[in-house]
């Protein structure tokens, strides 16, 4: 069974987990800085922090969850990529579809 990088890493120190953890903390703190301490507009802030979130998610998928190990890595990665496509379609689609004339309403 093919899991090259993974077979070696398990008698050694769990580097990928430590790096993943460190990067996640860093990205979280970065997002906080962008949100609270920078002077970008709300729109810019949200674009940046969503991108940071996607990066952190990808890091955790790779480094914590080892999505690319195992014989079925292509199916696993393919599934998650398709799921991301669906997530974007559902979230962006819903926001767009529901965005008509709502700024005028007093809710």
């Amino acid at each position: 069974m093919s899991n090259n990088e993974q077979t070696n890493s398990h008698s050694h120190f769990p580097w990928s987990h430590l790096i993943g953890f460190g990067l996640s903390i860093f990205l979280t703190l970065l997002a906080l800085w962008v949100g609270f301490a920078s002077d970008f507009s709300l729109r810019t802030i949200m674009i940046i922090v969503v991108i940071l979130a996607l990066i952190q998610a990808a890091i955790q998928l790779l480094m914590f969850m080892h999505i690319t190990e195992s014989d079925s890595s292509r199916i696993q990665v393919g599934t998650i990529l398709y799921a991301v496509f669906i997530a974007v379609a559902v979230v962006a689609g819903t926001i767009w579809v529901m965005s008509f004339g709502m700024h005028n309403m007093n809710m």
């Binding site: 999505i67 195992s70 079925s72 199916i75 696993q76 599934t79 998650i80 398709y82 799921a83 991301v84 669906i86 997530a87 559902v90 979230v91 689609g93 819903t94 926001i95």
Partner: peptide, 22 residues
């Protein structure tokens, strides 16, 4: 493998909740 696919479905589930929230 089956569980990874279930996680794909969970992403669809949470994305619907996020869409609703936003």
């Amino acid at each position: 493998l089956g569980f990874w696919i279930f996680l794909g479905a969970e992403i669809a589930l949470f994305s619907t909740l996020f869409a609703t929230y936003l």
